[in-house]
Simulated assay, not measured.
Amino acid sequence: MKNVKVVYVLIYDEINKTVLMVQNENHVWTLPGGAVEQNETLKQAAVRETIEETGLEVEVGNIVAINEAFFPDRGHHAVMITFTANIVGGNLAIHNEEEILQIKWFDLETASKLMPYYKLGIHSLLETSIPYTFQE
């Protein structure tokens, strides 16, 4: 199996208590994110994927979840790292309509139901934080 690193970005609006999500071409809702490219750090990938999927520029924070899964149909062993992020610029927009069908803010309960792979719910991610360091 091929090892694949995937990053996701949790953008939480504290005022409205909502989470930004994207609906992918397979109609599944996720946090903005995607595969890490060669010679790219995890944070660089998170910033790039967020811009590509939402049009928003973000400042990436700490890690709030690490998930792992086997995808035998694709031949992948995936490690998925979820970071927090704050919006620092850009405009919310779909740039690739073939890949992203919708972008929407959801309340925590709905977001948790749409993303059951965070077993303790999205609200639990807001209560945890693991520092991330790229060693140069």
Results as ranks from 00 to 15, higher is better:
1 M>G: 13
104 K>Y: 08
63 I>F: 06
99 E>M: 13
103 I>C: 11
123 H>T: 06
65 A>H: 01
62 N>P: 06
70 F>Y: 13
46 A>S: 10
39 N>I: 01
99 E>S: 09
61 G>A: 01
94 I>E: 02
108 L>C: 06
28 V>N: 12
31 L>V: 04
136 E>S: 08
4 V>I: 14
29 W>I: 00
7 V>F: 01
67 N>S: 07
129 S>F: 02
25 E>C: 06
79 V>C: 12
77 H>P: 00
6 V>N: 07
42 L>K: 12
57 E>S: 14
54 T>K: 01
57 E>Q: 13
78 A>F: 08
131 P>I: 00
57 E>P: 02
24 N>K: 15
25 E>P: 02
21 M>T: 14
13 D>W: 04
69 A>I: 15
101 L>S: 06
33 G>P: 01
56 L>S: 05
19 V>Y: 10
12 Y>S: 10
60 V>D: 02
124 S>R: 06
23 Q>A: 04
84 T>I: 05
2 K>A: 07
90 G>P: 03
1 M>H: 06
89 G>H: 04
109 E>G: 01
35 A>P: 05
32 P>K: 05
77 H>C: 07
127 E>F: 00
68 E>H: 14
30 T>S: 13
118 Y>L: 07
85 A>I: 03
135 Q>V: 03
27 H>N: 11
40 E>K: 10
96 N>M: 07
15 I>C: 04
90 G>I: 08
86 N>W: 03
73 D>Y: 09
87 I>R: 02
109 E>A: 05
94 I>P: 01
32 P>Q: 04
75 G>R: 03
103 I>K: 15
94 I>V: 10
99 E>V: 15
91 N>F: 13
76 H>F: 15
50 T>A: 10
24 N>T: 09
128 T>I: 11
81 I>M: 10
4 V>L: 14
70 F>D: 12
2 K>Q: 08
123 H>W: 05
94 I>L: 06
72 P>C: 08
135 Q>I: 07
4 V>K: 15
32 P>M: 05
9 V>C: 08
34 G>E: 08
10 L>K: 00
69 A>D: 12
130 I>Q: 08
61 G>T: 02
20 L>F: 02
27 H>P: 00
48 R>E: 06
52 E>K: 15
117 Y>C: 09
70 F>A: 15
55 G>Y: 04
27 H>F: 12
86 N>T: 14
134 F>W: 03
36 V>S: 01
132 Y>A: 03
121 G>R: 10
120 L>Q: 11
44 Q>E: 13
96 N>S: 07
15 I>F: 13
99 E>W: 13
115 M>Q: 11
72 P>K: 03
117 Y>G: 13
34 G>H: 05
54 T>E: 01
93 A>H: 07
36 V>G: 02
49 E>M: 13
11 I>H: 00
69 A>K: 14
103 I>P: 12
130 I>G: 03
111 A>W: 10
5 K>V: 11
125 L>S: 02
63 I>E: 02
82 T>L: 12
124 S>L: 01
41 T>A: 09
51 I>A: 12
77 H>G: 02
69 A>P: 01
42 L>P: 09
97 E>P: 06
56 L>F: 07
32 P>Y: 03
119 K>E: 08
93 A>R: 14
25 E>A: 09
